[in-house]
Structures are given as C-alpha cells and as structure tokens.
C-alpha cells in the first residue's frame, strides 16, 4: 500500500473521525445538552429532598456530585453506537482495514468533549450550591476530568454490548456498567472528601490516573469486540 506511515495515518484517521462525531453532535444539540441539564437538575433535587442545612449538604456534596455525574454519563452513553449501527456506518467500520479500536477511541473522546467536559465546567457552580468548601473545588474538577474519561471508556463497552437490544437497552446498559464503575466513584468522591477535610487527595487522584490508564488500554479492545458482535447480529 502506498499510504502514509502507520502512526501518521492512524492519527489522521482519528482526527477525521473526531471531526465527524463533533459535526454530528453539533447538528443535534439535544445529545449533549440534555445530559448536562440532567446533571444540574438531579443535584438541585438533593437539597429539596434532604433539607437545605449547609452542614449536611457539605458532607454529602462529594458523593452527590459524583453519583449524579456517573448517572448523567451513563444516560447519555446509551445512544453512543445507536445511529451508526442502524444506518450501517458501523458495518463499514467493522469491514474496513482500519483498527476498530481507533474508531472507538475517537467516539469516546468526542463523547467526552460533549458529555464530560460540560460537567467539569458547571461543577464549581454546583459545588457552591452544595456548600462544598472552596478549597475542594480544584480537586473536584480534576477528579471529574480523570473520572469521566474512565467512565465513558467503561460505559462504551456496555453501550456496545447492548447496542442491538431494542427497548430497555438503556437501563440494561446501566445494570451492566454501574457495578464496574464503583472504583471510579470511590476514588473520585474520596478525593473530593479528602480535599474538603483539608487532607491530601494525591493518593486518590493517582489511583484515578491508574484506572484511566487501565481503561484506556483495555476498554477499546473490549468495545471493539462487542461491536463486531453487534454488527454480526444486526
């Protein structure tokens, strides 16, 4: 083949896949707008349910923000592969000579820009609403940055496994994936709790980095395998 060297070729492919995903998403704003609205609304429900006492709220804030982020990511991920499976694009990806895991990584990264990044951006605001100490806010943002990427990588496996399931695929996906995301939740909210108590959060954060590294190396392979199964069944 007279193509570019492999690495440059893959990078160019990654970039055009990323552009494609972002172009699709910008043309259907509900896709990225709804999860962030969901995130904000769920968090505002807690003071209404638990009571507005600043002390209670600041204690539960790290957990609440993290669980809401987890749910919002899971809800938005349901449709990660839906369109591409049903319009035949996924079949083309599977039958191309390009590695399927690059396609997966591009989709995951695009999804993170649209579904993860906005969560980081509004999280300081929500931290203030929940009376989280200001000193914990940088750690909150950092933990969400590392954690949401891992969540989307792991969630993509579930989205691929349930892509062919029609009705109820979304709730099934959450059933499969949520137990697997427990470590991210523990270390993510743990980091914020530590920071809120003026304790070092470095240990938690470095474990989040380790989880991210592991997910980056293994999840695309599993997702690609699941997508091959989904295509063969569709």
């Amino acid at each position: 083949m007279d193509s570019l060297p492999l690495s440059t070729g893959l990078l160019a492919l990654f970039r055009s896949l990323l552009t494609r995903e972002l172009a699709v998403a910008i043309r259907s704003p509900g896709q990225w707008l709804n999860p962030i609205l969901f995130f904000i609304i769920v968090i505002t429900l807690f003071p209404l349910g638990v009571g507005p006492g600043p002390n209670t709220l600041s204690i539960i804030a790290p957990g609440i923000i993290w669980v809401s982020a987890l749910l919002s990511v899971m809800l938005s991920l349901q449709s990660l592969f839906y369109d591409d499976l049903h319009n035949g694009s996924l079949e083309q990806f599977v039958l191309s000579a390009q590695p399927l895991s690059v396609v997966v990584l591009a989709k995951v990264f695009a999804w993170w820009i649209l579904g993860g990044l906005p969560l980081l951006l509004v999280s300081p605001l929500l931290a203030i609403l929940m009376h989280l100490p200001a000193s914990a806010i940088p750690v909150l943002v950092l933990s969400l940055l590392l954690g949401t990427l891992t969540l989307i990588l792991v969630g993509a496996i579930g989205a691929a496994l349930t892509a062919t399931v029609g009705n109820g695929g979304g709730i099934l996906m959450s059933l499969l994936v949520l137990p697997l995301t427990v470590p991210v939740l523990i270390f993510g909210s743990g980091a914020v709790q530590a920071a809120a108590l003026q304790m070092p959060a470095g240990g938690h954060l470095s474990l989040l980095v380790a989880l991210l590294a592991l997910a980056l190396s293994l999840a695309p392979v599993a997702t690609a395998a699941a997508l091959r199964v989904a295509v063969s069944a569709s």
């Binding site: 062919t164 399931v165 695929g169 099934l172 699941a226 199964v229 989904a230």
Partner: peptide
C-alpha cells in the same frame, strides 16, 4: 450485581449466538 447483569444481558438478546458472544465479553 455483576452476575445479575450477565444473566440480564443474556436473556435480552434474542439470537442465541449473539447473546453468547456478548455475554462472554461481559
């Protein structure tokens, strides 16, 4: 929960061959 997820995935995919492969990956 992980066991239940495995069984739920298996039972919600109709084609046995697909269900088997998806569940195995999980």
């Amino acid at each position: 929960f992980i066991y239940l997820g495995y069984m739920a995935l298996r039972s919600s995919i109709e084609q046995p061959q697909t269900a088997a492969r998806a569940a195995a990956i999980l």
